[in-house]
Amino acid sequence: MSPMPSADSPVPHVEKITVMQALNRAMRDALRHDETVHVLGEDVGTLGGVFRVTDGLTKEFGERCFDTPLAESGIMGFAIGMAMGGLRPIVEMQFDAFAYPAFEQITSHVAKMRNRTKGQVHLPMVIRIPYGGGIGGVEHHCDSSESYYTHTPGLTVVAPSNPADAYHLLRAAIASPDPVIVMEPKRLYWSKAEVDLSRPRPGIGKAAIVREGKDATIIAYGQSVPVALEAAEVAKREGRDLQVVDLRSLVPFDDATVMAAVASTGRAVVVAEAQGFSSFSSEVAARIGERCFHSLAAPVRRVTGFDIPYPPPKLEKHYLVSVDRILDAVDSLQWEDQ
């Protein structure tokens, strides 16, 4: 990855970059902008991360992007101390399931510190977690673990689906006075889009309507968004006009945008790669049921992974959310013409 100009520049500049490059740029700009920002994790230094998201940062910023001992709880606890001591650490968990050793530090300490000290100690830290499957990864490399974090009060959780959001949500996460978990869509790391990073995007807490439509609303986040968009494209050829909402921010949840969208179409399908039982998608479906019941023409449907451990690479295609499954769910929304 070649060095890039700072996106802090107000000069409009359209370029084609990947999600991975956008995340890298966000950290690079933050490191340039604020000397309290530090990046730490496993292999984030000389190697630039196993996915190369921190590529070149150690070269430019030295020990401000540093490798740690291979111990996730230690990394997380160390970052908590760094934040208590006035720094803004960005932690990389190498893979979703590798963050589990840090679970106690995240749920008992990262999430609770502000509350237990009545705001006197706050932790401006970012936890980056490459999540999800579809990459042919072996076991423990493909979990969608967001529901553990969205269930924990005190954690802000965002899930970008494209390069522009990857950049701006990560910058916003770094600037936040609270700990933010960034669920990075690892299957989309290499997906490109033309972006102008000098153009502001909605902040944390805001969902975006990424496709207008009047027949039904598909609600997705992270790496399920492109699948939802493709489903909408196929549905259009079949005569159905699907609206797609990209949640972007799971906590805080943008009830206003989601409920207005669902009310406008009267039908909703929630799409997430994670196992569906007791998951974040359950929460979205429940909220729609509670708040939009009288606007609904059909029960809210969910399209999620099966309630099984993430499958081995040769079987993952049966698990992953697909265009077909989304369209089948849309078909079941009690259409009057059927």
């Binding site: 196993v50 893979f95 590798f98 990459i135 042919g136 990864g137 490399h141 690892k186 299957r187 992953l320």
Partner: peptide, 15 residues
């Protein structure tokens, strides 16, 4: 197989 038409593999899985 995938919405972006690719079957990505991690370049450096920890294993």
């Amino acid at each position: 197989p995938n919405p972006d038409g690719t079957l990505m593999t991690p370049r450096q899985p920890r294993t």
